[in-house]
Design a binder for these strands. Structure first.
Lengths: 295, 295
DNA sequence: ATAAATCGTTCTTTAAAACAGAACGAATAG
DNA sequence: CTATTCGTTCTGTTTTAAAGAACGATTTAT
């Protein structure tokens, strides 16, 4: 037996105002009809939503609960309705991309680049924390989340993490460092700017160091790639990061790539919710080869 | 003309599976009926939701949009339905309190204390960032948010900020500080642990200092009250904070209150959404006098 | 190549629901 | 203590959703 949304709607309206007769007038239905529909909803749910005290209606605890749900349901519905009402015009395609705020901006740009030239669609880019972004993804406020970590989905949150690209991780520093650092030997005297410990790249780097019995001096731990880029530029320390982050600086000579670390990769994932009808533009983004994202 | 939620429901089901006939069977209705209801929805919205290609249905851009809304609407509905289905039992009262994570724990506890003894209701306490909490409040996932700052509501977010209490702010430090600090003179040689600049208390403190032409040495800026408490306890610096935060330490002599700062207050606000039927327990919490919250 | 099956739409009839109106009862107001 | 207000219940009416048959288009099978 299905929930009757029209009954719920009437309940919502009455609960909002607290008066049956007034609501009936506002909705242009008879109070008798309204009363009946609400009673049917109560029978369907198996519990009283209103407490009848004299000729007044008060929300019961169950009613309060139902009201909260009704509120989100029908505000969504009204939003939808308004969206279609405002313009009879056809809807433009929209692609909404969320990106973990600590992710490389160059990578983000590379991902959405194919969409930038198109004037037949709207691109919405939002950054934020992982939790926040995943919540928005679940609420269908985002189409895809970009992250440097995969996420395991479960039955409640059927997320799908797809690796878009992997990028070697290099030693990046000022070009006039002397002696020039090399890996694994030739690091003494230098301090490092590293990704934070929650980062998978950092984990790989630590493993590599422990393999070569190295205990590098740590100048800073930074989780934001944009911040790391600034620190690499403005200090004499060695940053451990993918070259793509500092593409411009490498090109104009502000920074130098002292070589990739073997077996250490920064990975990029697209997290989506599996759905039957994917936006064709988004689908195209996700099925590209990894190289084009990083050049 | 109102949006028909039954039509939307059918649309949602068909859009999920992509097949009209199969969905009709699953819902135990005829495919003709299903087809008609969806057509009526399209007429109501003024746009095609499906693109008919041969005998296949594809979501149009408008359809994709509508589908996202339908998804949140009906998952909410199903959640509601499940909630009432699982137990025919009467629903216990629930009060859901959100608190800004940086807020004093003692204050939080004082706020919810009247509810702790009651076994006829469930108390849900969540902490998080202001943005996150306000979002949950708007989504009716929380009944009230506790904060040390008021929030201006608007027509879209009709928040109401109510001041629950104000608390003097004192100089708090180790009891064996010598010379004992006094305000405004007698602070030289001491360093301070201060709330972060986004905190209203910090602002008042800075104003006070500038009035007395003081430039205090800052040892640390901390936005989390629990953290501040630890630092006050484990350093020889002077913390600027309300005594309520360190009530226990003051009582057992671990810390000492060197006097309140004139005109500096830490304020506590309850942020709610105005509604017709407030939970009686919550209402009782909000109408208490401020004193009982802080003792 | 052509018949058969599949799938969605449209038209018409039938069943179900939402609805309005009247009668009723209880609580509030003058 | 009588009017009025407000929610409920009962009955007949109207509207809406549903089913069935006919149709057209596309895919599959022979």
């Amino acid at each position: 037996m299905k929930l009757n949304y029209h009954h719920l709607y009437y309940f919502w309206q009455v609960a909002k105002s607290g008066h049956l007769t007034r609501t009936a007038e506002a909705l242009h239905v008879s109070q008798s009809s309204l009363s009946q529909q609400i009673r049917q909803l109560e029978e369907r749910l198996g519990q009283a939503l209103f407490i009848r005290e004299g000729r007044q209606l008060h929300l019961s605890e169950a009613g309060r609960l139902a009201f909260d749900y009704a509120e989100t349901i029908f505000t969504q519905g009204e939003e939808l309705s308004a969206l279609f009402a405002e313009g009879g015009h056809a809807h433009r395609e929209v692609v909404r991309v969320g990106a973990v705020a600590t992710l490389s901006r160059n990578f983000q740009e590379g991902f959405v680049r194919p969409l930038l030239g198109r004037d037949d669609l709207d691109l919405i880019l939002q950054s934020g924390g992982m939790d926040d972004l995943l919540r928005r993804l679940s609420a269908h406020k985002l189409d895809v989340v970009l992250s440097n970590q995969p996420v395991r989905g479960d039955s409640e949150h059927p997320w799908r993490s797809q690796r878009l690209a992997r990028q070697p991780v290099s030693l990046i520093a000022s070009p006039n460092l002397s002696p020039p650092p090399t890996f694994p030997k030739g690091l003494s005297g230098h301090a490092f700017i590293l990704p934070g410990v929650e980062n998978a790249t950092r984990h790989a780097f630590d493993q590599l160091c422990s393999h070569y019995r190295l205990t590098p001096k740590i100048a800073a731990e930074v989780d934001d790639m944009a911040m790391m880029r600034l620190l690499a530029r403005d200090t004499q320390h060695i940053a451990v990061m993918p070259p793509v982050v500092v593409r411009d600086e490498l090109h104009n000579g502000t920074l130098k790539d002292y070589g990739a670390l073997p077996g250490v990769w920064e990975e990029f994932y697209a997290i989506t919710i599996q759905r039957r009808f994917e936006s064709p533009s988004l689908k195209a983004l996700l099925t590209r080869s990894g190289e084009s994202l990083l050049d």
